[in-house]
Each structure stands twice: as structure tokens, then as C-alpha cells.
Simulated assay, not measured.
Amino acid sequence: MALASPAAVAIAVPARRPAQRSPYPTWFFLPAAIIYAVLFLVPTLASLFFSLTRWTLFNWTFIGLDNFVQFFREPFLVQGLINTLIYAALTSGLKVVLGLLLAVFLTSEIMARDFLRSVIFFPVLVSTVGVGITFTVLMHPTTGAINETLALFGIKGPGWLTDPRLALISVALVDVWKGLGLATVIYIAGIVSIPQDFYEAAKIDGANAFQRFWNVTLPLARPATITVVILSLIGGLRSFDLIWSMTRGGPGFTSDVLASVIYKQYQAGFYGLSTAGNVVLFILVAIIIVPVSIFLNRKERTP
């Protein structure tokens, strides 16, 4: 059998096309880079520097790590750090679980489904401060509508925002109520994108509703779960406006989180200490979100 000539091989194999260059010049990215540097890099580097100083609006003195040492020596600052972790875990966990359950319910064949979706999402559109003020009135220990409603059934309502044991949890539940709509919408988008063939195959195999949820919906809605977990954790760790509008960190320091403690330090004129708190908050968010994101986004290894 005769071998093909080199010329024939060269003709048979198409020539590799040169890599196409982007039609947009590199300097088109310059405006975005400038905005990123001005709004993120410069403030971040400035915060890192001023966290190592004792500064006012007119002068500064370099003191090294003294602000960070003082930060972790103050009991109420450490309490704010603990409350931040509790608040973030509670709010993100409830948003994931309740958002998924509501999304499954709102993607089923029910009446007024679109109306119910709008009702669930409506709190997301309301001002956080407005929600905080409204629930402060509703949760008043004596004249609040919640405790008055409980009194109709012979139940004495607690001091939702005045009891040190309940204040942080009460604010967290309001946060869940306000942010649940966004988590539900994300889950709805993830569920409706699942091909119906998987559900039909599961039905043919005799899977009941719970088995279809556990073996089809839950695994294939994982991208939505990752998004909800990351967004909820970031929001919980950085939460300030709702807590400040409802309790201002009280009673005492029982509902203080890092952001509210930092704000109080600014109000008191301890600018260096509060800047160090901002750096601690930034590092806290990074060391929690980055590993969680890597863990959730890891790809399953195939043998």
C-alpha cells in the first residue's frame, strides 16, 4: 500500500488560523481600572494605613498594631465579633432553607403563583431603615401589634427588642423576612432551569415527591444554593442598617455587631480604633467567604 506524499498530507490538514486579536484596544479597559482603583484599591490601602495610626481629621501618629491589640482587649468589641458570626450564620441558614422550600412551592402547579411570587419578593424592595422602624413598633413589648395579638390568645409576649436574650435573634428574623424574597427568586430561577426529563425519569422509576426533591431538585439547584449562601453570608457579616434602626446595638451591647461597634467608635472620636475594626471586618469576611466559595464551587472528581 502506497504512503501519502508529504504534499498530500499538507493539503489534507487545514492550516491553523492565527489567533484573532480583540477588536477593542487594551486602553478601553482603562476607565474601569481607574474606577476600581479609586473606589476600592485606594480606600482599602488607606484604611490599612490609618488602622496603624492614631489619627484625626488634621493629623496622625503612627502607633503600629496598638489599635488591633486594643480592639481584641475590649470585651464589647469581642462580643460584637461573636454576635456578627451568630447573626450571619442564623440569617444565611434560614434564607437557604426557607428560600429553597418556598421556591419549590412556588414552582409547583398552584393557584395565584405569580401573585404569591410578587408578595414574597416585595419586602426586598422596601427600605431597610423603613422595615426596621416598622418592626420596632410592631415588636414593642406593651403596645406592639405582635404582643397584643398574642394577648388575645392568653399568651404574654416577650420583650422582643428589650430582652438581652432575644434582641439579636429578633433582628435576625426580621432580616430573614426582608431578604427571603431574593433567595427565593434565585432558587426559582435555578429550579425552572432543571430539564423536566429528570423529573419524568424519576417518576418512571417510582420516585415519590420527596425523593424527586432530594435526588433531582436539591443536587441540580446547587448553583443557586451557592449564590444564596455567598450573598447571605456577606450580607449577614456586613449587616448594620437594620440593627442600628431597631436596637442601636442594645440593650447594652447584646445586639451589637462589628459594623455597629465600628460606627460607635467613629461617633466617639476613636478614628484609628474604628478603622482597625473595619480592617478586622474586611479580613473576617475574606477568611470566611473565600474558603466557603472554594468549597462550594469545587468540582466533583471523576474516577
Rank of each mutant, 00 (worst) to 15 (best):
I110E: 00
F40C: 09
V285R: 06
Y266Q: 11
A268C: 05
A15M: 12
F282M: 11
P25A: 10
V280M: 03
T84Q: 00
V126P: 01
P291F: 04
N297S: 13
T217H: 10
L81F: 13
L3V: 09
V257L: 11
Q70G: 15
I120K: 09
A268Y: 12
M1Q: 13
Y199E: 11
A151V: 11
S108N: 07
F213N: 08
V228I: 07
T134R: 10
P251T: 12
F213L: 13
I283K: 01
A286R: 07
G159V: 00
V174K: 02
F121A: 03
A89D: 09
V171F: 06
V119W: 03
A4P: 14
G157V: 00
D175Y: 08
S245T: 07
L220D: 03
F210M: 11
A88G: 04
T56I: 09
G250A: 09
G235A: 11
F29Y: 13
N59T: 13
M111G: 15
L81H: 07
T56H: 04
Q211K: 10
Y266I: 01
D241I: 03
A33P: 02
T84C: 03
G277T: 07
G93Y: 03
T149D: 04
F68P: 00
K299L: 07
L273Q: 12
S22A: 09
L180Q: 05
F49E: 14
F135T: 09
L98T: 03
T302L: 15
V174F: 02
G93M: 03
L41R: 08
F282P: 00
I262V: 08
P14W: 09
S51Y: 01
